[in-house]
């Protein structure tokens, strides 16, 4: 996409300026983004592969991995269903307060992670609205797995909806209306027309949602209570090990999360290259 109508040839002073700008940009990207990433892996393997494997295989680490997977396995599908429902209502029907609903869906992105956890403590904690009632019935939400799941759902709520709404808006509903007129039932229309049309955007949203769900720290930190092996997800295990000066252990678990980030980035980039049109323009946001 170089300028087709550039009339003047590019002289050497300008080429030098281009080179200088490229150099500054790359130096920044390397120093600020690539170096932290490299640090994670270098520190993780500082004492060799054997120490790395030992650090990963410790029971607390394995418990943290398991818990992280469980939390994501609950939070992501729930937000997926919500995203489809919200996008369907917002892009296929006209109703009052639509703009407000859109703002509400985006809201969790503008809330500090700590506050996302805090609100659930105030709701379900010992001094919270439902605290005494829950206590009387022996239900534990805060400092337990349900709290982790709730905080994670809150933080990752917008991802899927946010990818789907602009795409479904742009696609319009003509194909779906045609399917209905030709006699398709609601579910037939959804599975044979709507879903194939949005599948790549859906995958894209799920990918981002999952990465954030597994990596969330601030919100789960507030509701977790840091009970080792029971309520510590991988990011919390990283924190605890780091604070105990177990750097190899901390970076070993961190390297798994960094790997997840790299896989997410690669898959995301691949989706953008291959199915860019089917994912459509998405607004930048708090991913």
């Amino acid at each position: 996409m170089t300028a087709p109508l550039r009339s003047r040839p590019v002289g050497w002073p300008r080429r030098l300026a281009h080179g200088g700008l490229i150099l500054v940009a790359l130096v920044f990207l390397v120093l600020f983004l690539l170096l932290p990433l490299a640090t994670v892996f270098v520190e993780a393997f500082r004492q060799g592969i054997a120490a790395y494997v030992v650090a990963i295989k410790q029971p607390e680490a394995l418990a943290a991995i398991r818990l992280t997977l469980i939390v994501a396995a609950i939070a992501v599908p729930l937000n997926l269903i919500f995203g489809i429902a919200a996008a369907w209502a917002m892009t296929r029907f006209e109703f009052r307060g639509k703009a407000l609903l859109g703002a509400l869906i985006d809201l969790p992105f503008s809330v500090s992670p700590v506050i996302s956890g805090l609100v659930y403590v105030l709701l379900f904690g010992a001094q919270g609205w439902f605290g005494p009632w829950l206590d009387a019935h022996g239900v534990k939400i805060i400092f337990a797995v349900p709290g982790l799941v709730l905080a994670t759902i809150f933080v990752t709520l917008p991802f899927v909806a946010r990818e789907l709404i602009p795409l479904m808006q742009a696609q319009g509903s003509e194909e779906e209306q045609a399917a209905r007129v030709l006699g398709a039932s609601g579910w037939q229309m959804f599975f044979r027309v709507t879903l194939p049309n949005i599948r790549w955007a859906l995958l894209y949203g799920v990918l981002l949602c999952n990465a954030r769900a597994m990596g969330e720290f601030g919100a789960v930190s507030v509701v977790s209570g840091h009970i080792r092996g029971l309520t510590t997800t991988m990011p919390l295990e990283v924190e605890m090990r780091y604070n105990e000066y177990d750097y190899v252990g901390a970076f070993a678990v961190a390297s798994l999360l960094a790997l997840l980030a790299l896989i997410t980035l690669a898959a995301k980039t691949l989706l953008e290259w291959r199915y860019g049109d089917e994912i459509a323009a998405h607004a930048p946001g708090g991913h």
Partner: peptide, 26 residues
């Protein structure tokens, strides 16, 4: 160029605790 372009999203994808201990060590 495309690799560096993909790298821009790293702070979105990298869990904050991981970024935190990496920056601190760096």
């Amino acid at each position: 160029r495309r690799l560096f372009d993909a790298l821009v999203d790293l702070p979105f994808a990298l869990p904050t605790a991981v970024a935190g201990i990496a920056l601190s060590t760096l």
